[in-house]
Amino acid sequence: MGETPRLVATDIDGTLLTDERTLSPRTRDALARMSARGTPVVLVTGRPIRWLQLVYEQLAEPLPAICANGAVVYDPVADEVLRADPLAPELLAEVARRLRAEVPGVSFAVEIVDSREMRHEAGYPLRWDADAEAIRAITSPEELHSVPAVKLLARAREQDPDVFLEVVAGALRGLAEATHSSYTGLVEISAAGVTKAAGLAWYCARLGIDEQDVLAFGDMPNDVPMLTWAGRGVAVANAHPAVLAIADEVTAANSADGVAAYLEKVFGVG
Protein backbone atom coordinates (compact mmCIF):
# COMPACT_ATOMS: atom_id res chain seq x y z
CA MET A 1 0.00 0.00 0.00
CA GLY A 2 1.16 3.53 -0.78
CA GLU A 3 1.36 6.38 1.67
CA THR A 4 -2.31 7.31 1.38
CA PRO A 5 -5.10 4.75 0.84
CA ARG A 6 -7.62 5.58 -1.89
CA LEU A 7 -10.63 4.00 -0.15
CA VAL A 8 -11.58 3.24 3.46
CA ALA A 9 -13.80 0.25 4.26
CA THR A 10 -15.04 -0.36 7.77
CA ASP A 11 -17.17 -2.83 9.62
CA ILE A 12 -19.89 -1.27 11.80
CA ASP A 13 -20.68 -3.21 14.99
CA GLY A 14 -17.77 -3.69 17.36
CA THR A 15 -15.55 -1.63 15.08
CA LEU A 16 -17.04 1.74 14.14
CA LEU A 17 -19.74 1.88 16.80
CA THR A 18 -19.29 1.86 20.56
CA ASP A 19 -20.52 -1.07 22.64
CA GLU A 20 -23.78 0.89 23.06
CA ARG A 21 -24.14 0.87 19.23
CA THR A 22 -23.64 4.61 19.02
CA LEU A 23 -21.29 6.62 16.82
CA SER A 24 -19.04 8.94 18.81
CA PRO A 25 -18.72 12.58 17.69
CA ARG A 26 -15.01 11.99 17.06
CA THR A 27 -15.68 9.08 14.72
CA ARG A 28 -18.52 10.87 12.94
CA ASP A 29 -16.30 13.89 12.32
CA ALA A 30 -13.36 11.78 11.12
CA LEU A 31 -15.57 10.05 8.55
CA ALA A 32 -17.03 13.39 7.43
CA ARG A 33 -13.54 14.80 6.93
CA MET A 34 -12.57 11.74 4.88
CA SER A 35 -15.52 12.31 2.56
CA ALA A 36 -14.75 16.03 2.35
CA ARG A 37 -11.20 15.31 1.19
CA GLY A 38 -12.54 13.04 -1.57
CA THR A 39 -11.58 9.65 -0.12
CA PRO A 40 -14.50 7.21 -0.45
CA VAL A 41 -15.68 5.53 2.74
CA VAL A 42 -17.83 2.40 2.53
CA LEU A 43 -19.53 0.48 5.34
CA VAL A 44 -19.02 -3.29 5.10
CA THR A 45 -21.33 -5.13 7.46
CA GLY A 46 -23.24 -8.25 8.27
CA ARG A 47 -26.26 -6.02 8.95
CA PRO A 48 -29.29 -6.09 6.67
CA ILE A 49 -30.37 -2.94 4.86
CA ARG A 50 -33.22 -2.39 7.30
CA TRP A 51 -30.74 -1.90 10.17
CA LEU A 52 -28.67 0.76 8.41
CA GLN A 53 -30.97 3.67 9.17
CA LEU A 54 -29.93 3.54 12.84
CA VAL A 55 -26.38 4.23 11.68
CA TYR A 56 -27.23 6.77 8.99
CA GLU A 57 -29.07 8.86 11.56
CA GLN A 58 -25.76 9.34 13.38
CA LEU A 59 -23.58 10.10 10.33
CA ALA A 60 -23.04 13.49 8.73
CA GLU A 61 -24.12 11.91 5.43
CA PRO A 62 -25.21 8.39 4.40
CA LEU A 63 -22.37 6.19 3.18
CA PRO A 64 -22.59 3.36 0.63
CA ALA A 65 -22.85 -0.02 2.29
CA ILE A 66 -21.96 -3.60 1.52
CA CYS A 67 -24.51 -5.53 3.56
CA ALA A 68 -25.30 -9.10 4.55
CA ASN A 69 -21.59 -10.06 4.62
CA GLY A 70 -21.04 -9.06 0.99
CA ALA A 71 -24.26 -10.30 -0.57
CA VAL A 72 -25.80 -6.83 -1.09
CA VAL A 73 -24.21 -3.59 -2.32
CA TYR A 74 -26.42 -0.63 -1.40
CA ASP A 75 -26.59 3.02 -2.47
CA PRO A 76 -28.43 4.88 0.33
CA VAL A 77 -28.78 8.15 -1.59
CA ALA A 78 -30.82 6.50 -4.34
CA ASP A 79 -32.12 3.77 -1.99
CA GLU A 80 -30.96 1.35 -4.66
CA VAL A 81 -29.40 -2.11 -4.52
CA LEU A 82 -26.50 -2.07 -6.96
CA ARG A 83 -25.79 -5.77 -6.70
CA ALA A 84 -27.20 -8.80 -4.90
CA ASP A 85 -25.87 -12.36 -4.73
CA PRO A 86 -28.45 -14.50 -2.92
CA LEU A 87 -28.72 -18.17 -2.08
CA ALA A 88 -31.07 -19.83 -4.59
CA PRO A 89 -34.14 -21.63 -3.18
CA GLU A 90 -32.82 -25.10 -4.08
CA LEU A 91 -29.51 -24.30 -2.37
CA LEU A 92 -31.32 -23.02 0.73
CA ALA A 93 -33.27 -26.26 0.88
CA GLU A 94 -30.12 -28.39 0.68
CA VAL A 95 -28.28 -26.30 3.30
CA ALA A 96 -31.22 -26.56 5.69
CA ARG A 97 -31.48 -30.31 5.08
CA ARG A 98 -27.81 -30.89 5.86
CA LEU A 99 -27.85 -28.78 9.01
CA ARG A 100 -31.04 -30.34 10.37
CA ALA A 101 -29.34 -33.73 9.99
CA GLU A 102 -26.10 -32.51 11.61
CA VAL A 103 -27.30 -30.15 14.37
CA PRO A 104 -30.14 -31.24 16.69
CA GLY A 105 -32.51 -28.40 17.52
CA VAL A 106 -31.19 -26.01 14.87
CA SER A 107 -33.55 -23.20 13.85
CA PHE A 108 -33.36 -20.84 10.89
CA ALA A 109 -34.20 -17.40 9.60
CA VAL A 110 -33.71 -15.96 6.12
CA GLU A 111 -32.97 -12.40 4.98
CA ILE A 112 -35.00 -11.81 1.81
CA VAL A 113 -35.88 -8.94 -0.55
CA ASP A 114 -32.23 -7.84 -0.51
CA SER A 115 -32.33 -7.97 3.33
CA ARG A 116 -35.24 -5.56 3.68
CA GLU A 117 -37.33 -8.40 5.14
CA MET A 118 -36.78 -11.44 7.36
CA ARG A 119 -38.70 -14.69 7.70
CA HIS A 120 -37.97 -16.97 10.65
CA GLU A 121 -39.02 -20.31 12.06
CA ALA A 122 -41.18 -20.21 15.16
CA GLY A 123 -38.35 -21.42 17.38
CA TYR A 124 -35.80 -18.92 16.09
CA PRO A 125 -34.99 -16.27 18.76
CA LEU A 126 -35.21 -12.65 17.64
CA ARG A 127 -32.50 -10.56 19.31
CA TRP A 128 -32.65 -7.08 17.80
CA ASP A 129 -35.94 -6.26 16.17
CA ALA A 130 -39.43 -7.57 15.63
CA ASP A 131 -40.84 -5.16 13.04
CA ALA A 132 -44.26 -6.55 12.19
CA GLU A 133 -44.01 -5.27 8.62
CA ALA A 134 -40.51 -6.53 7.83
CA ILE A 135 -40.28 -9.62 10.03
CA ARG A 136 -42.65 -12.52 10.49
CA ALA A 137 -42.67 -16.21 11.32
CA ILE A 138 -43.00 -18.69 8.49
CA THR A 139 -46.03 -20.94 8.44
CA SER A 140 -44.44 -24.06 6.93
CA PRO A 141 -40.92 -25.50 6.59
CA GLU A 142 -41.10 -25.05 2.81
CA GLU A 143 -41.54 -21.30 3.17
CA LEU A 144 -37.99 -21.05 4.49
CA HIS A 145 -36.66 -21.74 1.00
CA SER A 146 -39.52 -20.50 -1.17
CA VAL A 147 -37.62 -17.43 -2.44
CA PRO A 148 -33.94 -16.44 -2.78
CA ALA A 149 -32.27 -15.21 0.42
CA VAL A 150 -29.15 -13.06 0.76
CA LYS A 151 -28.40 -14.73 4.09
CA LEU A 152 -29.47 -17.79 6.05
CA LEU A 153 -29.15 -17.51 9.83
CA ALA A 154 -28.74 -20.60 12.01
CA ARG A 155 -29.00 -20.95 15.78
CA ALA A 156 -28.97 -23.95 18.08
CA ARG A 157 -29.22 -22.72 21.65
CA GLU A 158 -26.53 -20.63 23.33
CA GLN A 159 -23.14 -22.17 22.60
CA ASP A 160 -19.56 -21.33 21.73
CA PRO A 161 -19.82 -19.56 18.35
CA ASP A 162 -16.41 -20.77 17.14
CA VAL A 163 -17.28 -24.40 17.87
CA PHE A 164 -20.72 -24.06 16.26
CA LEU A 165 -19.19 -22.40 13.20
CA GLU A 166 -16.75 -25.29 12.81
CA VAL A 167 -19.65 -27.77 12.83
CA VAL A 168 -21.70 -25.77 10.32
CA ALA A 169 -18.78 -25.04 8.01
CA GLY A 170 -17.85 -28.72 8.00
CA ALA A 171 -21.37 -29.74 7.04
CA LEU A 172 -21.54 -27.16 4.25
CA ARG A 173 -18.01 -27.35 2.87
CA GLY A 174 -18.09 -26.70 -0.87
CA LEU A 175 -21.77 -25.78 -0.78
CA ALA A 176 -21.97 -22.38 0.93
CA GLU A 177 -19.99 -19.86 3.02
CA ALA A 178 -20.40 -19.91 6.81
CA THR A 179 -19.11 -17.32 9.27
CA HIS A 180 -20.05 -15.54 12.49
CA SER A 181 -19.97 -12.04 13.94
CA SER A 182 -21.43 -12.45 17.42
CA TYR A 183 -20.77 -14.20 20.72
CA THR A 184 -24.23 -15.76 21.00
CA GLY A 185 -23.89 -18.85 18.83
CA LEU A 186 -25.30 -17.38 15.61
CA VAL A 187 -23.86 -18.63 12.30
CA GLU A 188 -24.43 -16.63 9.11
CA ILE A 189 -24.55 -18.50 5.80
CA SER A 190 -24.12 -17.02 2.33
CA ALA A 191 -23.82 -18.38 -1.20
CA ALA A 192 -20.46 -19.93 -2.07
CA GLY A 193 -17.88 -17.23 -2.71
CA VAL A 194 -19.93 -14.49 -1.06
CA THR A 195 -17.87 -12.72 1.60
CA LYS A 196 -17.19 -9.16 2.68
CA ALA A 197 -14.06 -9.31 0.54
CA ALA A 198 -16.01 -10.31 -2.58
CA GLY A 199 -18.59 -7.57 -2.13
CA LEU A 200 -15.90 -4.97 -1.47
CA ALA A 201 -13.85 -6.15 -4.47
CA TRP A 202 -16.87 -5.67 -6.75
CA TYR A 203 -17.47 -2.18 -5.38
CA CYS A 204 -13.82 -1.17 -5.71
CA ALA A 205 -13.64 -2.48 -9.28
CA ARG A 206 -16.63 -0.27 -10.08
CA LEU A 207 -14.63 2.74 -8.83
CA GLY A 208 -11.38 1.63 -10.47
CA ILE A 209 -9.60 1.14 -7.13
CA ASP A 210 -7.10 -1.68 -6.63
CA GLU A 211 -7.16 -3.77 -3.45
CA GLN A 212 -3.68 -2.57 -2.56
CA ASP A 213 -5.10 0.93 -2.18
CA VAL A 214 -7.81 -0.11 0.29
CA LEU A 215 -7.63 0.40 4.05
CA ALA A 216 -10.05 -1.86 5.95
CA PHE A 217 -11.11 -2.11 9.61
CA GLY A 218 -12.82 -5.00 11.38
CA ASP A 219 -13.26 -7.02 14.55
CA MET A 220 -14.92 -10.40 13.95
CA PRO A 221 -14.39 -13.59 11.90
CA ASN A 222 -16.69 -12.35 9.12
CA ASP A 223 -14.16 -9.52 8.63
CA VAL A 224 -11.18 -11.84 8.04
CA PRO A 225 -11.67 -12.18 4.24
CA MET A 226 -11.93 -8.39 3.86
CA LEU A 227 -8.88 -7.64 6.03
CA THR A 228 -6.72 -10.19 4.21
CA TRP A 229 -7.89 -8.92 0.80
CA ALA A 230 -7.28 -5.23 1.47
CA GLY A 231 -3.88 -3.63 1.06
CA ARG A 232 -3.93 -2.79 4.76
CA GLY A 233 -6.16 -4.64 7.22
CA VAL A 234 -6.50 -3.08 10.65
CA ALA A 235 -8.10 -4.76 13.68
CA VAL A 236 -9.53 -2.86 16.61
CA ALA A 237 -8.00 -3.89 19.94
CA ASN A 238 -11.22 -5.60 21.05
CA ALA A 239 -11.22 -7.89 18.00
CA HIS A 240 -11.68 -11.65 17.98
CA PRO A 241 -8.37 -13.58 18.21
CA ALA A 242 -8.77 -14.78 14.61
CA VAL A 243 -8.85 -11.17 13.43
CA LEU A 244 -5.93 -10.05 15.57
CA ALA A 245 -3.92 -12.95 14.17
CA ILE A 246 -4.22 -11.85 10.51
CA ALA A 247 -4.35 -8.05 10.83
CA ASP A 248 -1.51 -5.94 9.46
CA GLU A 249 -1.96 -3.51 12.34
CA VAL A 250 -4.03 -3.06 15.49
CA THR A 251 -5.63 0.23 16.51
CA ALA A 252 -7.42 1.20 19.71
CA ALA A 253 -10.68 -0.52 20.71
CA ASN A 254 -14.06 0.53 19.36
CA SER A 255 -14.83 2.05 22.77
CA ALA A 256 -11.75 4.28 22.38
CA ASP A 257 -12.51 5.50 18.82
CA GLY A 258 -9.93 3.18 17.25
CA VAL A 259 -11.03 3.80 13.66
CA ALA A 260 -11.03 7.58 14.10
CA ALA A 261 -7.64 7.50 15.81
CA TYR A 262 -6.12 5.53 12.94
CA LEU A 263 -7.65 7.79 10.27
CA GLU A 264 -6.35 10.84 12.09
CA LYS A 265 -2.86 9.35 12.12
CA VAL A 266 -2.77 8.23 8.48
CA PHE A 267 -4.69 11.06 6.83
CA GLY A 268 -4.08 13.88 9.27
CA VAL A 269 -7.81 14.54 9.58
CA GLY A 270 -7.81 15.20 13.32
Rank of each mutant, 00 (worst) to 15 (best):
G2R: 14
E3I: 13
T4P: 07
T10H: 12
D11F: 02
L17I: 05
R21C: 04
S35A: 15
P40R: 00
I49P: 09
I49T: 06
L54Y: 10
Y56H: 12
E61T: 08
E61H: 07
A65H: 08
I66F: 06
N69G: 14
N69P: 08
Y74I: 08
V81F: 12
R83C: 13
P86A: 01
P86R: 04
V95A: 08
A96L: 04
A96E: 12
A109Q: 09
V110F: 11
V110T: 09
E111H: 05
E111I: 00
D114F: 13
E117K: 02
H120V: 12
H120G: 11
E121I: 00
A122Q: 12
Y124R: 05
Y124E: 02
R127F: 03
A134M: 05
L144H: 01
P148W: 06
P148L: 03
L153P: 03
A154H: 01
V168A: 07
L172T: 02
L175Y: 14
A176C: 11
A178F: 06
Y183H: 12
I189D: 13
I189W: 05
A191T: 00
K196C: 15
A197V: 11
W202N: 05
W202P: 01
L207P: 14
A216S: 14
A216M: 13
M220T: 10
T228Q: 15
T228F: 02
T228C: 15
W229R: 13
A235N: 04
A237I: 04
L244T: 06
T251P: 09
A256S: 13
A260M: 13
E264G: 15
E264C: 15
K265G: 13
V266E: 11
V269R: 00
